[in-house]
Design a protein around this nucleic acid. Sequence first.
DNA 1: AAAAACAGCAACCGCTGTCCG
DNA 2: GCGGACAGCGGTTGCTGTTTT
Length: 244
Amino acid sequence: MMGRSPCCEKAHTNKGAWTKEEDDRLISYIRAHGEGCWRSLPKAAGLLRCGKSCRLRWINYLRPDLKRGNFTEDEDELIIKLHSLLGNKWSLIAGRLPGRTDNEIKNYWNTHIRRKLVSQGIDPTTHRPINEPAAAAAAPQEEAVSKTISFSQSERIDKCPDLNLDLRISPPSSSQQQNQEPLKTGTSSGSSSTLCFACSIGIQNSKDCSCRDGIMISVSGSSSGYDFLGLKAGVLDYRSLEMK
DNA sequence: AAAAACAGCAACCGCTGTCCG
DNA sequence: GCGGACAGCGGTTGCTGTTTT
């Protein structure tokens, strides 16, 4: 793509830490008009800020549904497991942790979890023991980052031996209702359904959605809820699934 | 008590993906 | 099909508070 012009006139925008007054202006504007159109928001709200900066401030610190505070042990574990599967896809990971932001999780990973894993002798990038031969250690993470995920559930369990597929986690936090309702596809009365990996982790309609391409994660069994990554316990097959 | 080193995290930067004229 | 506008993402920076020397 061609280069882009700056999203705002830098000469007339503030940078750095936000003041209480700026926060208040942003909050009251969004309360009155809702999110969206970040480019025009600063002017409309009377802020000398770049739209991008406003968006970041709102999403990461001012949104009313943010949890803040220390991460729990459960959240730690979930982040580690999600990272082992998704790599540095912080926004996807954040989508599985209601009230947490991608920036917060990214910072937490880099400052706490990374160190914790290293102290346990685990490579935080590959999620494998640090002394393992390089060839073996290169497996899931590098594939996840740029290539192809090509391991089945049994392989994945082998790589993440403690991965509990019965974990109940929420779908993307945008929908509280989905938190309570099992994710269903196809006919609502069916005892089995299928959904692609992209849909299963809440990025429906994305280019990664492969529901129509026959690249499915088969889901079968009882109709009780969904579990890890929004899937019911069943056959996971990531073969041929391309990651960005 | 002061300086240096370290840790945590808010915010910025640059890039990509998508939409639309 | 092309290119500009925009939203969003991930990596990085740099400020601030805390700990160590």
